[in-house]
Design a protein around this nucleic acid. Structure first.
Length: 247
RNA sequence: UCGUAUAUAUUCG
């Protein structure tokens, strides 16, 4: 079972989902030799999540329960992640409640996924509530949690709040990273505040955060989305100067 | 890091 799980994991990572499911089904058929365990089911749930098939992710989750394997926190988190990626906050919240009903404690991944579900459905205030609840339950938000909340505000047009989280995280002892910066650069375009791009680039520089390709793309994309081609080209030139590869 | 699974950024059809 352990060996097969590793193979399934590899197949999923390289995008050979059909073969992963084939192997999964063969394990279920010959249950006496290598029966699927909680990791097997969860890996398959994850593969459906990656394919954007939240419904099938839930089907496998139910299948696991029906076949006598207890979902653990990672299984619930995989389902939460599938819902979150589609902004399906209602289903995500139900899953979150269900996990607690089954005696499991939400961990940082659970909270961050639920937060993200609200962020993706344009409900930054609900995302903030989840963030606060996380702390109340002695679950310290990390870099990923902060970045997800920054994106929740940025996607909702609340650039001020997004930027102030940069300072809030530092006060909390957490260093912003290139994802934080990239998220904010994207937010500048969505919030139509291109003048903040320079502010954010300066903030990155002063913290020693090196921008990568995605981060430059974010900034250039923000300029382009509002038609500021001059600034877009300028940023592209900076990217070349810094030896960051365009894609 | 200590044999396998889960959460955050650019592309908006």
């Amino acid at each position: 079972t352990f060996t097969q799980n590793i193979v399934i994991h590899c197949l999923v990572k390289v995008g050979r989902y059909g073969e992963a499911i084939e192997l999964f089904n063969s394990m279920r058929e010959k249950r006496t030799i290598c029966p699927p365990d909680v990791v097997t089911y969860t890996s398959i749930m994850y593969s459906y999540s990656v394919c954007g098939q939240a419904e099938n992710c839930k089907v496998v989750f139910d299948m696991m329960v029906a076949e006598g394997v207890r979902p653990n926190i990672v299984s619930y988190n995989a389902l939460l992640g599938a819902y979150a990626s589609h902004g399906m906050h209602k289903e995500a919240l139900e899953t979150f409640k269900l996990l607690k009903q089954n005696g499991l404690r939400p961990d940082i991944v659970s909270y961050t996924s639920l937060l993200n579900a609200y962020g993706r459905s344009a409900q930054p205030e609900k995302a903030r509530e989840v963030f606060n609840e996380m702390r109340k339950n002695a679950c310290k938000p990390n870099k990923v949690s902060y970045n997800a909340l920054i994106d929740a505000y940025g996607s909702a047009g609340m650039l001020k709040e997004a930027i102030s989280l940069l300072h809030e995280m530092e006060r909390d002892g957490i260093q912003p990273d290139v994802v934080s910066i990239s998220t904010l650069l994207t937010a500048c375009g969505r919030c139509r505040q291109l003048t903040k791009i320079d502010t954010i680039l300066a903030a990155a520089k002063s913290r020693g955060i090196e921008l990568n390709t995605v981060a430059y793309n974010s900034g250039i994309g923000s300029y382009l989305s509002l038609g500021d081609y001059e600034k877009a080209l300028e940023l592209y030139a900076l990217m070349r100067t810094c030896n960051v590869k365009p894609d």
